[in-house]
Design a protein around this nucleic acid. Structure first.
Lengths: 216, 216
DNA sequence: AGGCTTGCACGTACGGCGTACGTACGTCAA
DNA sequence: TTGACGTACGTACGCCGTACGTGCAAGCCT
C-alpha cells in the first residue's frame, strides 16, 4: 500500500486537526508525527521548525475564509459581509483562532482580506489614509471579539456557565458589576458581534461627511 | 545576610521582569528560580503551578493600571481616559501584554476596570444592556489594538521597518495593498488608537438618542 | 548495466522543560 | 524536650524541540 507521501500540506492539515481535537497545547512534533504514522524527524524534511509549522497553520486557516463579495451591493453591506466572513474563523476553527490572531504573517495569505477590505472602502469614497485607518479599526475590533469568543470558551468541558461568579464579587467594591452580573454572565456572541459591527459602520458612515465639512 | 524570604509577590515580580527583559518564551520555572537565586522547587511552596503563576503575572500587570477618574468630567472624556489608561499596559509592560489579553481572569484584578467603565456608562444614561454591550465593544477594540501594537513589535531587534514589503506583493493580485503600501507600512500607534476611540465614542453618543427615537 | 547523486524517512542523543516526591532544617507550641 | 509544621531543596521521570548521522530508493549520466 503506497501511503501518500509526506508533504507540508499534509503536516499542516494534521496539525490543524490535532489543534481542533485537543487544543493548541497538545501540539508537538512527536504527536503530529504519530498521528501521521511517521517518524518525528521526517517532518523536518518539509517544515523548517515548529514555529514555521504553526505559521503554516495560521495561514491555512486564514486562507479558508470564504469571501463572497458582491460588487453591486452597497458598501456597508459589503463591509458587513467581510467582517462576518472573517469571524467565520472562530466557528470553523475555534481552537486555532488564537494562533491566527497572535501571529503576524508576512505572506500573501493574510493580505487577501486586507486587499478586499481596502478595495471596498476605497469604492465607498474613503481616501487612502481613512481607508487604512478604518481597516485597522475593524481588524482590531474583530480580533478582539474573536479573542473573547474563544477565550470565554477555551474548552467546552467545564460547566462554568457564569464568567462572573456572583459569589466572588464584593457588592460593596463592585456595585455595577454586581448589579449587571446576569448581563455580564450571559453572552450572545452573534448579537454582540453584530452590535459592534453595526455601530462601527454607522460611525464611519458619517466620517467622510464630517471631514468634508471640517475647518480644513 | 538574611535574604528576603520567598513569596508569591516576589516570584511574580521576577517573572514580569524576566518577560520584559527576554520575552515570554524565556519564562521557565528553572529560569525564574535562578534569577531569584533559589531552588526550582521552592517556587512551588508559593505558587501551585506555572499556569497559575502566569495568571498572577497577568493580574499584577492589570492591577497596575492607573485610573485617574474625574467624576465631574463629561462622560466622553472619562471613557477616553479609561481607554487610554488601559492602553498604558502596552507601554509599561509591552512583552507581557499578550499574557494579559490572552488569559481570562476570574479574579478581582480584572473586575476593577470593568466596574469603572460600567459606572461611567451608566452615569452617561445607558441602560444595563447597552452599557454591557458598549463595554464589550470597547474591550474588543482595545484588546485588538494592543495586540497589533505589540505584535507588530514582538521584539525591537529586527530592522524590518515595513510590515508590508513591496517586493513581496504582486501588484496584479493586490492593487490596493500595493498602492497603499506606504500607508500600511507606517503606523502611528497613538494616532491610530485615538482615531478608533474617537470614532467609537462618537458612535455611542448617538446610540441612546437613536434608541429613544426608535419605533419601540 | 553500473555507478553517482539526490532526497526523504528514520533512530539516536542532547539539553531543557514542568513537576511529583522525598528529605532536611528552622521555628514555635505544648 | 519534643513534636508538628512550614519552607527550601535535590533527585528523578516523562515530556519537549531538534542537531546529526545512517540507510534506502529513485533518477540521472555514461
Amino acid at each position: 500500500m503506497p501511503t501518500e507521501p509526506l508533504s507540508r500540506t499534509r503536516i499542516v492539515a494534521a496539525a490543524i486537526d490535532l489543534i481542533e481535537r485537543e487544543g493548541a497545547d497538545a501540539v508537538s512534533m512527536r504527536r503530529i508525527a504519530a498521528d501521521l504514522g511517521v517518524g518525528v524527524m521526517s517532518l523536518y524534511n518539509h517544515v523548517p521548525n515548529k514555529d514555521a509549522l504553526l505559521n503554516g497553520v495560521a495561514e491555512a486557516v486564514l486562507s479558508q475564509i470564504e469571501f463572497t463579495d458582491d460588487p453591486d451591493a452597497h458598501w456597508t453591506d459589503r463591509v458587513r459581509m467581510q467582517a462576518r466572513a472573517f469571524r467565520q474563523i472562530a466557528h470553523g476553527h475555534p481552537r486555532s483562532t488564537m494562533l491566527v490572531v497572535s501571529r503576524q504573517l508576512h505572506s500573501n495569505a493574510g493580505l487577501l482580506p486586507v486587499e478586499r477590505a481596502l478595495a471596498t472602502l476605497r469604492s465607498a469614497g474613503f481616501d487612502g489614509v481613512d481607508a487604512v485607518r478604518v481597516l485597522r479599526m475593524f481588524i482590531a475590533y474583530i480580533v478582539g471579539s474573536l479573542l473573547r469568543e474563544v477565550g470565554v470558551t477555551p474548552t467546552f468541558a467545564p460547566p462554568r456557565q457564569h464568567m462572573v461568579n456572583p459569589d466572588d464579587v464584593d457588592p460593596a467594591l463592585f456595585p455595577e458589576v454586581n448589579a449587571l452580573a446576569p448581563l455580564l454572565s450571559s453572552c450572545d456572541h452573534d448579537a454582540d458581534f453584530d452590535f459592534g459591527v453595526e455601530l462601527l459602520i454607522q460611525a464611519i458612515t458619517v466620517l467622510p461627511k464630517r471631514k468634508r465639512e471640517g475647518t480644513r
